[in-house]
Amino acid sequence: MGNNIIVIDDDVGTALFFKICLEDEGYQVNIYNDPNSLLEEFEPGIYDLLITDIRMPRINGFELASRVRIMDSKIKICLATAFEEYYQSIIKSYSDLSFNCIIRKPINKDNFLEIVESRLNESK
């Protein structure tokens, strides 16, 4: 089972909340608040899952996920958003990234962990 997760959210509090929830469950978690830093430091083959906020300055979550997927074709991706309806149309245009994993904000811890676990257990 995959244990290494990378979380990016430009809101420091949200990123820390994700990290604490996941580490309580035994996952190894690295957090970033700046998409450019993540892209500069990202190493393929280390992480099993990327959890990315969609709305971030400069690089949105879709763009970030696309770039990470190019660097690491095996990484699984979950998008976190408070505006799911608005993004459903955009998600369709990124169908090659298999964004079948949406984490709704505000976060419900149990729900969030269930989504993460099921995404990590998927074969693709």
Rank of each mutant, 00 (worst) to 15 (best):
N3R: 14
N4E: 13
I6D: 09
I6H: 06
D11N: 14
D11M: 07
V12I: 14
C21I: 12
E23T: 15
G26M: 10
V29A: 05
I31Q: 04
S37E: 12
L39F: 06
F42Y: 15
P44W: 00
G45E: 07
Y47V: 03
Y47S: 03
D48A: 07
L49S: 03
D53Y: 09
R55L: 15
R58C: 02
E63V: 09
R69Y: 05
R69H: 10
I70L: 12
M71N: 11
S73D: 11
I75K: 00
I75H: 05
L79N: 03
L79I: 03
T81S: 15
Y87F: 13
Y87K: 05
Y87R: 00
S89D: 12
I91R: 09
I91G: 00
I91V: 15
I91C: 04
K92L: 13
S93V: 08
L97A: 13
F99K: 02
F99I: 12
N100L: 04
C101V: 04
I103N: 04
P106M: 11
I107H: 05
I107Q: 02
N108I: 14
N111R: 12
F112H: 00
L113R: 02
E114L: 13
L120M: 11
L120R: 08
L120Y: 03
E122P: 00
E122M: 13
K124S: 09
